[in-house]
Nucleic acid binder design. Sequence first.
DNA 1: CGTAGATTTGAGTTCTGTCAAATTTTGTGG
DNA 2: CCACAAAATTTGACAGAACTCAAATCTACG
Lengths: 233, 233
Amino acid sequence: MKSASDIALQQLESHIVRIPTRKPQKLAISTETGDTLFLIQSGVYLVRAKWCDGRHQILLLLYPGDCMRSAAIPPLERVEIAAASEAGEIWRLRWSAALRLFDGDPNVARHTTDRLAEQTARLAIHNAIIAGLTGDERVAALMMELALRTGKETPRGIEFDMPLSRTDIAEYLALNADTVSRILSRMRSSGLVTPLARCRYICGSVEALARECPIGPAIRRMHEPASSLTLAV
Amino acid sequence: MKSASDIALQQLESHIVRIPTRKPQKLAISTETGDTLFLIQSGVYLVRAKWCDGRHQILLLLYPGDCMRSAAIPPLERVEIAAASEAGEIWRLRWSAALRLFDGDPNVARHTTDRLAEQTARLAIHNAIIAGLTGDERVAALMMELALRTGKETPRGIEFDMPLSRTDIAEYLALNADTVSRILSRMRSSGLVTPLARCRYICGSVEALARECPIGPAIRRMHEPASSLTLAV
DNA sequence: CGTAGATTTGAGTTCTGTCAAATTTTGTGG
DNA sequence: CCACAAAATTTGACAGAACTCAAATCTACG
């Protein structure tokens, strides 16, 4: 069964640039390049901003199905989309081409617009996380996000990859890499998450994680697979 | 001369609810109400989220010309749009009605979509401000934002209203009201801004403010009146 | 003029950042 | 498969920025 968006995307074939990526690969987003739409096909990506004085910051995580419009990126010095997963694929097309498609197919326009609205909501909730939660609560929120978005159910809990290094986590959660390391040590010893391998964790109970952070329910609604925000087209 | 968006908005007359507001007035945004589009006509508004434990937080400031789609608001407990200016006007229409209009007039669709993308960029830059700047730098960023968005040039500098209370500022910048008060005292004594009256300031040099915060140039590009992001329709 | 609310300021505490050293992990070549 | 170097992570000790609590002061408004 083909969904409307599949059909619409076929019409775009000629305009889409398919970009397979490996782990540290980066796509630059500059204002000069012109307005661009990115469609995440597989893998996790980081939207990272770099400042004048060499400081970095991760604004947003992108998951499969997400859309990202470069005009929605603030005019910071340098912004890039960095591949966090070992392998992934991202599609790129000019916003003007997307607009032409939208004119012809309102359903695709709606789907994309709704996805972009979801990005906005994710930014807002991430704002709330950074602004209002303690370090431990922020890390718990990130674990929930990754477990719900990319995890797989197993008899022992939800298993998921952690594609972010300590530095990445710190840049995403507005913490220090040393502090992140300390917090993860505490989470390990309290049994909230258990490392299975390098960059792979298992979480016995997402409920326990949710109890660790005051906006747990909102994070669940935002990232849970069958969420009302994941619009069927 | 009528702009395209003016003409398009005329077609919407029958669907728009015009809401004049006074200072502490609040418009509730709930997921049950359905997807809604808000158009700021005049005044400054706060998008405020309330958490379970009674804590508040201001996610975003809205200025005249801004659009806000309720689907772009995260599923937090309670979210509301609060009037910050003494008087203002905000228009409300259902997203479904907006979509019908978009189908008929691609220009309005583009204008609205671009405005919503600008909101996303504003959220992202606010993220960067909260995540990476010190308290003093954050307040400087807020002053720049208000001065550039709502200020008027005078021989002595830019004059602007401060529609936010100390508590509001604290909720917006992820600080404590006491800390905000201390920072404002320092800014007064260093002459970066000078109070003219209750809730009214004059800033002698926006450049001096920009020097106080590492992402000053980005804030300028984001909020300056003739910015490339303010799209002419 | 008096009261309620907002703001300012001080003193002490806590969380997180900074710096440095130890330890683990990863990648490379023999 | 092992040894080695480079990078990432962990952990400790200390410092600093911001929070909490409390009291004093100011402002708006009836």
